[in-house]
Simulated scan of single mutants.
Amino acid sequence: MIVYILRRMVQSFLVLLAVSLVVFMAVYAVGDPIELLVSAEASDADRQVMIKRLGLDLPVWLQYWSFLTRAFQGDLGTSFVHGIPAIELIVQRFPATFELVVVAIGLTCLLGIPLGLVAGLFNDKPLGRGLMGGSVLGFSLPNFWQGMMLILMFAVWLQWLPSSGRGDTVNVLGVPLSLLTADGWSHVMLPAINLALGNIALVLRLTATGVMEAKTQEYVKFARAKGISERRILTRHILRNILIPVVTVIGMEFGTLIAYSTITETVFAWPGMGKLLIDSIYKLDRPVVVAYVMLVTFIFVMINLLVDLAYAVLDPRVQLQEAQ
């Protein structure tokens, strides 16, 4: 297991190196940040001073090498716009995004798996067919339109929930958390539901498909013939065997939501990393964009590793194969 983890860490390092090169070159090729950072009335001398201060006078390969050497020391650059380290700016926004994603994934697990079990067990009944048919909406509705409809219904018409912002927060060890206040929960629900709907549909269909396949297997028929209760068959035989693909999808979607919650955060004015990324792209704040992509890539890599390790817990055969 230790050898496997070390091998994955080496692979992760190579992935991060490749991503850093591609993203740095792509960001370098888009626009000129000096046009946005320096006033149109500024003199050429002032422009040259700004260019030199930001290191934009160096060749692109030398800029990348400078970025790499600083990155190995934990420095991913300084924001052109805000004048503070890019990683510090991202970390300030991370708690808001993390809370939003945790609530969205929680809703996905609490609703997607049980509804998928029902849809799979009653796939030949109107209830099962209705759940499977309704899940298609989760894949079909555009995320931004879906968010605006949630705002229109629950914030404008019913006035049950606020439409934007993060609400009241409580500092815990210097980290502002909104899930510890009632106002924070009221603010997080709409954007979390917007993020969760597509994943609920995905997990529902995946779980239902697994249940429909598993309940026809011989081990389930044998367990039923032995007189084992239906609840035990469902929890110990069916659910345990279908959890591996479900855990995989949930783990991948967790990383995906952290990286790509930009639309939801923009629609609901949620002060997280996604909104910071959009603002940084508009302002050509290159260090923040590169640091953001590097951070979410690292998160993806770590989540993939944790999902692989979870296989060994859910399926003993993975351990046996690894030990050989």
Rank of each mutant, 00 (worst) to 15 (best):
I200D: 00
G184T: 05
E88V: 10
D46M: 15
P126Y: 07
L107R: 09
W145C: 08
G272Q: 04
T216E: 15
V188H: 00
I105L: 02
Q92P: 11
D44T: 11
E88K: 12
I278P: 02
E99M: 11
L177E: 02
L76W: 05
L295S: 06
G112F: 03
D279H: 12
L314K: 09
A71F: 14
T169G: 01
Y311N: 05
P114C: 09
N171L: 15
V288C: 03
L204Y: 01
G120I: 03
P176Y: 04
L131R: 00
Q217K: 14
S43Y: 10
K221Q: 12
L190E: 00
S140R: 12
L158I: 03
W65K: 14
L115K: 05
N143K: 13
G227S: 08
P95T: 06
I258H: 08
Q146H: 13
R317V: 09
R47A: 08
V19D: 02
E230Y: 09
L158G: 01
R7Y: 07
F222H: 14
S229V: 13
R8Q: 13
F94G: 04
T266S: 13
L243S: 08
E88Y: 12
D46K: 13
P245L: 06
W160P: 00
G55I: 02
E88Q: 14
V170T: 13
R231L: 14
L56R: 09
I151E: 00
A42Y: 07
V247Q: 01
L257D: 04
T69V: 15
V318Q: 10
W145D: 12
Y4A: 09
A155H: 04
L180A: 11
A223F: 11
D32C: 11
S20M: 04
F80M: 07
D279A: 14
Y219W: 06
A29P: 06
V101H: 03
D183H: 09
